[in-house]
Design a protein around this nucleic acid. Structure first.
Length: 415
RNA sequence: GGAUAGAUGGGUGAGUUGGCUGAAACCACGUCCCUGCUAAGGACGCGUACGGGUAACCGUACCGAGGGUUCGAAUCCCUCUCUGUCCA
C-alpha cells in the first residue's frame, strides 16, 4: 500500500509518479478524498465516544454515591444514538478507502525508465556471449521429444493444458538444479527455508496479490486458502505483523517451492513447450532489510541470480523494467533474460524487485529503529525459475545429433 | 471423532460477584545514581495503531478473532479459530 500521508502532503508529485504506472489522477483524487472523509468520520466518532466514556465514568460515581441517574441516562442514551450513526459512517468510509487503497500499485522509483510495456524495457548489460552453432539449433520441445525428456501429452491427460511431466534424465536435472541453486544462494548468505504452498488471504494481501489479482490464483474449494503463485508470499509473510529487533536485519532467505498460476491473462501465449505452466518450480530469494540498505541488497540479489546463470554457463542479459511493465508491488525491477538459441531470443528467467515499504505497510512488518517502529523494506527475486533453466540448458547445450551436454557445475549433483 | 481446560503486554503471570485496570507483580530491557570488583543496591522509564498538538501531552481503539447485552466488558452471552490434556 502506498503511504497515504504522502498522498495528503504532496499530491501532485505522487500523482505524476503513479501516472507512469498507468494510475489515473482521478483515482488518486478519489483516494485522497476518501482518506479525508475517513479522518473526519473518525474525529466525529472519537469526540462522541470521548463524551460517552466520560459520562459512563460519572455514571459509576453516581451509582456509588446513590444519586439519581435518570437524567444522566437520558443524556447518555441520546449520545449513544449519535455514536451509532458516527460509527456506521466511519465503517463505510474505512471500507471504501481500503478497497481503493489496496488496489493502487506501488510508486515507481525515479530511476525507472519511461515506457508502456516490455518493448520499452532498457537493457543494462549482456553477460556471456551466446555460442555460435554450426547447425540450426532446435527449440526445447523438439529436443524434449527427441530425448524423451518432457511428456506434454500425459501431463495434459492428468490435469489440463499447461501441465507436463519430466522423464528420468530431465527429472534428475531438475532436482540437481534445485539443489545447486539452493546451495549457491546459501553461499551468498541466504538461509534455506522450506515453506508450504498453501496460504491464507491475509498473506496474499500482505504481498499484494490480493485483492486485485484473485483471478490468477488457485483457491481451495470452500476455504479461504490459496495455492501460492510464488514463494515470495510465504517467505515475506513469515514476519507479518511483527516488530523485528534491528540486529535481526537484514533477513536473507531462499526457498524452493512449486508455484501455481492460472495464467488467466495469458491465453494463447507460449502454448507450445514448457515456458508457461500452471505449476512450476522456482527457487526464490527474499530479503527483509532496513530502508537504507535495501538498495545494496537489491544489487546483491541481482548479482546472485546473474552469477548463478554464469555458473551454469548460460548467456543472459539484465534488463531494467520500464514503468509500464513494472509489477504491482515493485518500486523498481531488474529482469534477467536467458538466451534461448532455439527461439533465437532472450526470455525472462528471473525477476528481482525492491518493493520498498509497499509490502511492509500491508503486512505490518516493522523494526525497532531506536525508539520508533519503522517499516522495513522487502525484496524478492527468482533464483531461478527451474523449468525455464532446464529449457535454457537444453537449448544452449544441445549437440548436432540432438543430445544434450550437462553443464559442468551440475555434474556433481547428478547421480 | 468424543470429553475437558485454556487463549491477557518482550517473557512468566494476576485480574472473570461488569466501572477506580491499558491492564498488578516478577523477570527481561533502557537511562541515570550509588558502589567499587568477581558481584550487588537504588531511582525512573518501558505495548501497538490511528488522530490532534511546535512540544509537554491529549483523544480513540486493541486483553485469540468476530458479533451481542449494557450508560459502561479483559470480565456476561453467542459464533469461529487455535493450543494443551484425557478418551476412542
Amino acid at each position: 500500500m502506498i503511504d497515504l500521508k504522502l498522498l495528503q502532503k504532496d499530491f501532485d508529485a505522487l500523482s505524476a509518479k503513479l501516472s507512469r504506472k498507468g494510475v489515473d489522477a482521478e483515482l488518486l483524487k478519489e483516494l485522497k478524498q476518501k482518506n479525508e472523509t475517513l479522518k473526519e468520520a473518525k474525529a466525529t466518532y472519537e469526540t462522541l465516544q470521548a463524551a460517552q466514556n466520560a459520562m459512563s465514568k460519572e455514571f459509576g460515581i453516581y451509582k456509588q454515591q446513590g444519586k439519581d441517574v435518570a437524567e444522566l441516562k437520558a443524556k447518555v442514551d441520546a449520545n449513544k444514538l449519535k455514536i451509532n450513526d458516527a460509527l456506521e459512517a466511519q465503517r463505510i468510509a474505512q471500507e471504501a478507502l481500503e478497497l481503493l487503497a489496496m488496489a493502487i500499485p506501488n510508486i515507481p522509483d525515479d530511476s525507472v525508465p519511461e515506457g508502456a510495456d516490455e518493448n520499452d524495457n532498457v537493457e543494462i548489460k549482456k553477460v556471456l556471449t551466446p555460442r555460435s552453432f554450426s547447425f540450426t539449433p532446435k527449440e526445447h520441445w523438439e529436443l524434449a521429444e527427441q530425448n524423451g525428456w518432457i511428456d506434454f501429452e500425459r501431463g495434459v491427460k492428468l490435469a489440463t493444458s499447461r501441465f507436463s511431466v519430466l522423464h528420468t534424465e530431465a527429472a534428475k536435472i531438475e532436482r540437481a538444479l534445485i539443489n545447486f541453486m539452493l546451495d549457491f544462494n546459501a553461499q551468498r548468505g541466504f538461509a534455506e527455508m522450506s515453506v508450504h504452498a498453501i496460504v491464507n488471504r491475509a498473506a496474499l494481501e500482505g504481498t499484494g496479490q490480493l485483492p486485485k489479482f484473485e483471478n490468477d490464483l488457485y483457491k481451495l474449494e470452500g476455504q479461504e486458502l490459496f495455492l501460492i503463485p510464488t514463494a515470495e508470499v510465504p517467505l515475506t509473510n513469515l514476519y507479518q505483523d511483527e516488530i523485528l529487533p534491528p540486529e535481526a536485519l537484514p533477513i536473507l532467505m531462499t526457498g524452493y517451492t512449486s508455484c501455481f498460476r492460472k495464467e488467466a491473462g495469458a491465453a494463447g501465449r507460449d502454448t507450445r513447450g514448457m515456458i508457461r505452466q500452471h505449476q512450476f518450480h522456482k527457487v526464490e530469494l527474499v530479503a527483509i532489510t532496513k530502508p537504507e540498505e535495501s538498495e545494496k541488497v537489491f544489487e546483491d540479489m541481482v548479482a546472485c541470480a546473474s552469477d548463478l546463470l554464469s555458473a551454469l554457463e548460460l548467456p543472459h542479459r539484465l534488463v531494467r523494467l520500464c514503468a509500464g511493465d513494472l509489477g504491482f508491488g515493485a518500486a523498481y525491477t531488474v529482469d534477467l533474460e536467458v538466451w534461448l538459441p532455439g527461439q533465437n531470443t532472450y526470455r525472462e528467467i528471473s525477476s528481482v524487485s525492491n518493493t520498498r515499504d509497499f509490502q511492509a505497510r500491508r503486512a505490518k512488518i516493522r523494526y525497532k529503529d531506536g525508539k520508533n517502529n519503522t517499516l522495513v523494506h522487502t525484496l524478492n527475486g527468482s533464483s531461478l525459475a527451474v523449468g525455464r533453466t532446464l529449457i535454457a540448458i537444453m537449448e544452449n547445450f544441445q549437440n548436432e545429433d540432438g543430445s544434450i551436454t550437462i553443464p559442468e557445475v551440475l555434474k556433481p549433483y547428478i547421480r
